[in-house]
Simulated assay, not measured.
Amino acid sequence: MKNSKTVIYPQQCPIPIPDNYPAKLVNNVNDLHQAVFTGLFQNHFLAIINRLHSLTKVSQKTLWGNAVNTAYGIFEELDGYANQ
Rank of each mutant, 00 (worst) to 15 (best):
Q84M: 08
T38G: 02
K24V: 11
H53T: 07
N20R: 13
V7N: 01
L46Y: 08
M1E: 15
L40P: 01
Q42G: 03
I74V: 15
L52F: 05
H33D: 00
G80T: 09
V36Q: 03
D19I: 09
T56R: 03
P22T: 10
P22Q: 06
G80R: 13
L32C: 01
N66G: 09
L55T: 00
L52K: 07
R51W: 08
I74N: 06
P18K: 08
V29C: 04
T6D: 11
V68K: 10
F41I: 05
V26N: 02
W64R: 05
E76D: 11
V68T: 07
N43S: 14
Q11V: 13
V68P: 02
L63T: 04
V36C: 00
I49F: 04
L40R: 02
N30L: 04
Y9N: 04
W64M: 07
T70Y: 09
S4F: 07
S54D: 13
L40D: 01
G39A: 03
Y21E: 13
P16K: 14
Q11F: 11
A35S: 01
Q42H: 11
I48K: 08
T56E: 06
S4H: 07
N30V: 08
I15W: 12
R51G: 03
A82V: 10
G73R: 13
V29I: 13
L25Y: 02
H33K: 05
A35C: 03
P22C: 04
N20V: 08
T62G: 00
S54T: 07
P14M: 09
F75V: 07
K5S: 10
K57D: 11
P18T: 05
G80Q: 10
I48H: 06
P10Q: 07
F37N: 06
A23Q: 04
N30A: 06
L52D: 02
T70L: 14
L63F: 05
Y21G: 05
C13F: 15
V29T: 11
Q84W: 09
P10L: 04
M1H: 15
C13P: 01
F41L: 01
Y9W: 15
I8N: 04
D79F: 10
K24H: 06
V36N: 04
L78C: 08
L55Q: 03
G80I: 04
L78Q: 13
P22A: 06
T62S: 11
L78I: 14
G39D: 02
N28W: 05
T70V: 10
R51M: 08
V7Y: 03
K57F: 08
N43C: 12
N66E: 12
K5R: 13
R51P: 01
N66S: 11
V26A: 02
L25S: 03
L63K: 05
N28E: 09
K61D: 10
E76G: 08
N50K: 12
K61Y: 07
W64S: 06
Y9L: 15
A23I: 04
D19A: 14
S59T: 14
Y9I: 08
I74L: 10
N28R: 03
V26S: 01
L55M: 11
N20Y: 14
K24S: 07
V58Y: 07
I49W: 01
T70C: 10
Q11K: 15
